[in-house]
Deep mutational scan, measured.
Amino acid sequence: MKVMIRKTATGHSAYVAKKDLEELIVEMENPALWGGKVTLANGWQLELPAMAADTPLPITVEARKL
């Protein structure tokens, strides 16, 4: 699914347009965010693609819901 990742004042957030859902990312498998699992505030887990740590945000990526 397409997910937009952006930086907020409190960390990172994910927006899933198909579900009209925006949630804070509360847990990251990798400190650089990319190439691992993230957990959203509502409990969803997404697998993000591997990208460079300095990838500019906001960005829309293809993520997989676990």
Results as ranks from 00 to 15, higher is better:
Glu23Arg: 06
Trp44Tyr: 03
Ala9Trp: 07
Thr60Trp: 15
Ala52Trp: 05
Leu40Ile: 02
His12Ile: 13
Lys2Asp: 10
Val16His: 04
Val26Trp: 05
Gly36Pro: 01
Ile59Val: 13
Ile5Arg: 00
Lys19Gln: 15
Leu46Ser: 01
Pro49Phe: 06
Glu23Val: 15
Trp34Tyr: 02
Leu66Arg: 07
Pro58Tyr: 05
Ala52Met: 07
Val26Gln: 04
Gly11Met: 02
Thr39Met: 09
Trp44Asn: 01
Pro31Ala: 11
Ile59Ser: 01
Leu46Gly: 00
Lys65Asn: 12
Leu33Pro: 03
Leu21Val: 13
Ile25Met: 01
Glu29His: 04
Leu48Ser: 00
Asn42Met: 02
Trp34Ser: 03
Lys7Ile: 08
Gly36Asn: 03
Ala17Gln: 12
Glu29Pro: 00
Glu29Met: 06
Ile59Lys: 08
Arg6Lys: 14
Ala50Val: 12
Lys65Pro: 10
Pro49Glu: 05
Thr39Asp: 01
Ala52Val: 07
Ala9Asn: 10
Glu62Asn: 13
Lys65Ile: 15
Asn42Ala: 01
Lys19Asn: 15
Asn42Leu: 04
Gly36Met: 04
Pro31Leu: 09
Glu62Met: 14
His12Phe: 15
Ile25Tyr: 01
Thr8Ile: 09
Ala32His: 14
Pro31Asn: 11
Leu66Met: 11
Pro31Phe: 08
Asp20Thr: 07
Ala32Ile: 09
Thr39Gln: 07
Lys7Arg: 12
Leu40Trp: 02
Ile5Lys: 00
Ala32Arg: 11
Asp20Cys: 14
Glu23Gln: 12
Lys2Cys: 15
Ile5Ala: 01
Leu57Tyr: 07
Ala41Cys: 06
Ala50Thr: 10
Ile59Thr: 07
Pro31Cys: 09
Thr39Trp: 11
Met28His: 12
Val26Lys: 03
Gln45Arg: 11
Arg6Leu: 11
Leu57Glu: 02
Val26Tyr: 04
Met1Ala: 05
Gly11Arg: 03
Val16Asn: 07
Gly11Thr: 03
Lys18Trp: 14
Ala53Ile: 11
Leu33Ser: 04
Leu24Lys: 11
Ile25Val: 07
Val26Ile: 14
Thr10Leu: 13
Leu57Pro: 01
Pro58Ile: 05
Met51Thr: 02
Glu62Cys: 15
Leu40Ala: 01
Leu21Cys: 14
Leu40Val: 00
Ala50Phe: 13
Leu24Ala: 14
Thr8Val: 11
Ala50Cys: 11
Glu47Phe: 12
Ile25Leu: 04
Ala52Lys: 10
Leu48Cys: 00
Ile25Pro: 00
